[in-house]
Amino acid sequence: MSDTILKVRDLYRTYDIKGGLFKKPGKFTAVKGVSFDVERGSTLAIVGESGCGKSTLARMLTMIDAQTSGSIEIDGLPIDIAKTGISKDMRQKVQIVFQNPYGSLNPRQKIGHVLEEPLLLNTSMPAAERRDLALEMLTKVGLQPEHYGRYPHMFSGGQRQRIAIARAIMMKPKLLVLDEPVSALDLSVQAQILNLLKDLQDEMGLTYIFISHDLSVVRYLADKVMVMYFGEVVEYGTRDEVFGDPKHEYTRTLFAATPNADVDSIKARLAKKVA
């Protein structure tokens, strides 16, 4: 029996669309009956294009929004914030890293306070201990202790994403939702952040939900892959299954559209151009 940390069953999320002067009010279903399991310590990649519902799913998993129907269970704890609200217990299970490192840090908050905020709000840890933990976390994600007192705008995009990751793991969560964490970063920085994520996973036994539109990153990092299209899961399987033998038409389109940087395809393209 495998060790399942996240269990999602038949999850729906519906938004009401306000009616305008000439428009009737309507409903928009962003996530349509999604079910999946994630094993402890593994990485599930959720792939899809904008508007496919992957970010809505992330917001439900991290308790930012409530689900319309269906069940989420994280580490044995049922999550339904519309009914039960959020407890500190639930908060310690799951955290999120956002896509845009420039928007996800409060510009008026020094890095140290950014990192300490989750501890301050959810634990009764004394200030000195919080600070030690924040300093330790800074070194862990590859920054220096002297960055503690600086403001976010003094950092590059990659460094900010490190800070955002550090903030997310301050409370030692079981599950980390990564919402396109590297798509706003330069290629070389992207590689560093991906390495960091791998190291942290090995070290802390983290489980990742990795949301991305970049198939090459997904292929590198994921154990299992889930492809979403207009709110529905169209493909779900291990990485090798999905990449080796995509079943759904959309998945194949997605693969075909991804730019190819290998020499053979460049040769083929140039040959076609001459002809």
């Binding site: 290629l187 992207q190 940087a261």
Partner: peptide, 19 residues
């Protein structure tokens, strides 16, 4: 060379090389 090898699809082994 660094840029090209930082592409995840060119990854060999467990870690991505960085610049």
């Amino acid at each position: 060379r660094a840029l090209l090898s930082a592409l995840p699809e060119n990854a060999t082994g467990d870690r991505l090389p960085t610049v």
